[in-house]
């Protein structure tokens, strides 16, 4: 057994175990960290497959961006909303295991008996080395042969950015009501949100003392701050 095989088994074992950890962990934060480890190990698998650029992209995009996004959302959601929910109906769980095992058996059968046929591409490892390396070759192909899909992908990302911003806006921006102040609320009516909501309804947000009409002196009323019980 050569070193590549040993390294493959190590990376694959950790990747699969941590993937199982994602699914079976009780705490979503533990799931997110297990997912980070799984993705890092899969990046190692990419290196074994000679896809160094994708390994870097995997680390930067998945573990750097997407997982941080996940952790942010877990932090933004209130802890009591994250209570344990691993209580799918028993029938559903059993069915899921059955389907999963069946799918794995089918895939295993195909992998064990299938033979890889198909036209060989023009880039064996020597060609990749001649082109200057994996990254240079991907850049050359991506910006020539796959230029249109690349531009469409950038459009998809733009749409996703706009959609994410719209989804993240507080409700009052979408109902056309003029925002008087910006608050860092997450939609739970606390702080400035409560004041704005109260103003909209026309009720005082805080209990203010009734000072009476300006310019009149009401001698029957105790002055503000005079204390009670007198």
């Amino acid at each position: 057994m050569d070193w590549a095989t040993i390294i493959f088994y190590l990376l694959a074992a950790v990747a699969v175990l941590t993937a199982a950890g994602v699914v079976f962990a009780r705490n979503p934060v533990h799931s997110a960290f297990a997912l980070v480890i799984s993705f890092l190990n899969v990046a190692g698998i990419y290196v074994l497959l000679g896809a160094e650029f994708l390994a870097a992209v995997q680390v930067i995009v998945y573990t750097g961006a997407i997982l941080v996004l996940f952790l942010f959302v877990i932090m933004l959601v209130r802890p009591e909303d994250l209570r344990e929910l691993n209580t799918a109906p028993r029938v559903q769980t059993a069915l899921a295991w059955l389907l999963g095992l069946a799918l794995f058996a089918e895939l295993g059968l195909v992998i064990a008996t299938g033979v890889l046929t198909g036209a060989r591409g023009p880039y064996p490892p020597e060609e990749v080395a001649a082109a200057g390396g994996n990254t240079q070759l991907i850049g050359r192909i991506l910006y020539s042969e796959f230029l249109l899909p690349f531009e469409v992908a950038s459009l998809v990302l733009l749409v996703a950015v706009v959609a994410a911003v719209i989804l993240g806006l507080p409700d009052r921006f979408l109902t056309g009501e003029r925002a008087r102040g910006l608050s860092l609320s997450l939609g739970h009516p606390t702080g400035a949100d409560r004041v704005l909501e109260a103003e909209r309804r026309g009720v005082p947000a805080v209990d203010a003392p009734d000072l009476g009409e300006p310019g009149t002196i009401d001698t029957g009323r105790a002055p503000v701050g005079a204390g009670r019980g007198r």
Partner: peptide
């Protein structure tokens, strides 16, 4: 390896109720 990871992910989608 790919099939294993995919099936584990599928089990997660089918058995968990937490959307995260």
């Amino acid at each position: 390896l790919s099939a294993l990871l995919f099936v584990i992910g599928m089990l997660g989608v089918l058995t968990r109720k937490n959307i995260l």
